[in-house]
């Protein structure tokens, strides 16, 4: 599903290469749940961004479903993101002033789905994320946990195979974090491939099959 080969990401400061990711090699199977673990600044968010095509690697290759996503032109990469990848961000990144339902529609607009179908899909996604009762509320009217559910619904709306979560519980309390993990479990059972970048210890005791991959200073410690 996701193959990472000799991936490097570095910034040049005063002629010196500062590595954020150093020679990463990783293979993630379809339907697998991978927890990318590491302290802040270890490089896990950057790795996730590169897998999502939101950032470009300095060198190396990332294949998602066999597609070298970092080399895809914008039009293809965008379409790929809209249809094949769902992303849940740490700070939710919902559009302000727009209802949860309309937030969930946004990826489908890019995928050129008709309005009626898009609304139906968005409602289904909100149902899966257990937030359909707040469909008409805007992000400013919601709690952190509710926003997170809205973000999950948006990530699921196009029915992608790959779900990427970046520090999904960082802004949630324990109850909401546990609820998120429960949703993650359901997604796993649905056969989705899940990659979670987190430093939250709650993810160390998941009660479903998963693999923990640790990153430290841009290097994979265990895979």
């Amino acid at each position: 599903m996701v193959t990472i080969e000799n991936l490097n990401k570095f910034y040049e400061i005063d002629g010196q290469k500062q590595y954020v990711l150093n020679d990463i090699k990783l293979n993630i199977q379809k339907g697998e749940c991978v927890i990318l673990k590491g302290v802040s600044g270890s490089g896990k968010t950057t790795l996730l961004s590169i897998i999502a095509g939101l950032d470009k690697p300095s060198s190396g290759k990332v294949l998602v479903n066999g597609e070298p996503i970092s080399k895809l032109p914008d039009m293809h990469l965008s379409a790929f993101r809209a249809e094949k990848i769902g992303i849940v961000f740490q700070n939710f990144n919902l559009l302000d002033g727009v209802s949860l339902l309309d937030n969930a529609i946004v990826p489908l607009v890019a995928a050129k789905v008709g309005l009626k179908e898009a609304k139906q899909k968005a409602l289904n996604a909100l149902k899966v994320a257990n937030i359909e009762h707040k469909a008409n509320k805007t992000p400013s009217e919601l709690s952190g946990g509710e926003k997170q559910r809205g973000a999950i619904a948006r990530a699921l709306v196009a029915n992608p195979n790959l779900i990427l979560c970046d520090e999904p519980t960082a802004n949630l309390d324990i109850a909401n974090s546990l609820s998120f993990i429960q949703t993650l479990k359901e997604l796993h059972h649905m056969g989705k491939t899940i990659i979670v970048a987190t430093h939250d210890s709650l993810f160390e005791e998941l009660d479903f099959k998963h693999r923990v991959v640790e990153i430290s200073q841009g290097l994979l410690v265990d895979s």
């Binding site: 999502a52 939101l54 914008d74 039009m75 990469l77 965008s78 379409a79 790929f80 993101r81 809209a82 249809e83 992303i87 961000f89 990144n93 919902l94 559009l95 946004v106 990826p107 607009v109 890019a110 995928a111 948006r154 196009a158």
Partner: peptide, 16 residues
């Protein structure tokens, strides 16, 4: 800036 970044992240192309 943020709105555009969100749109891009969820699959909108530059042209969109």
């Amino acid at each position: 800036r943020k709105e555009i970044a969100i749109l891009r992240a969820v699959g909108w192309s530059i042209k969109d």
